[in-house]
């Protein structure tokens, strides 16, 4: 659940989602769920000419399983907090394994 929580901290930030079919969609992250399905608002498509089907679309729901990368604004990531959370998660996992 670490990444679910992490993405929740990025809500209302502008991100670029790259899909496994190479489409890159930039938009405001509005919501994310446990499968890392992503909802973007006010989208714009990089290389719009190549993907005409998105020209009239203003917000999208992207199935988590088709996402390759999410490009984040560096300033929006609290790195010490993320490191802490990662260690805590790892400790939890180790505790569970025993």
């Amino acid at each position: 659940m670490l990444f679910f929580s992490f993405f929740k901290t990025l809500i209302d930030q502008e991100v670029t989602v790259e899909l496994k079919n190479d489409i890159q969609i930039r938009g405001i992250l509005k919501s994310v769920d446990q499968y890392l399905n992503i909802k973007l608002e006010d989208i714009s498509v990089v290389e719009e000419l190549k993907y005409p089907h998105l020209s009239a679309v203003k917000n999208v729901f992207i199935r988590g399983s088709v996402v390759r990368y999410v490009h984040l604004p560096a300033g929006a990531v609290d790195i010490p907090l993320l490191e802490d959370a990662t260690r805590r998660e790892a400790a939890n996992q180790a505790g569970k394994a025993k």
Binding site: L19, E48, L49, S55, A56, K58, F61, R63, V66
Partner: peptide, 23 residues
């Protein structure tokens, strides 16, 4: 069926009648 969905987007009805740019 859900597994076949890549993405779904709400269409901006103001732009819906215009052909996609370049098409």
């Amino acid at each position: 069926r859900g597994e076949n969905v890549l993405l779904l987007g709400e269409i901006d009805l103001d732009k819906d009648d215009d052909p996609p740019p370049g098409y």
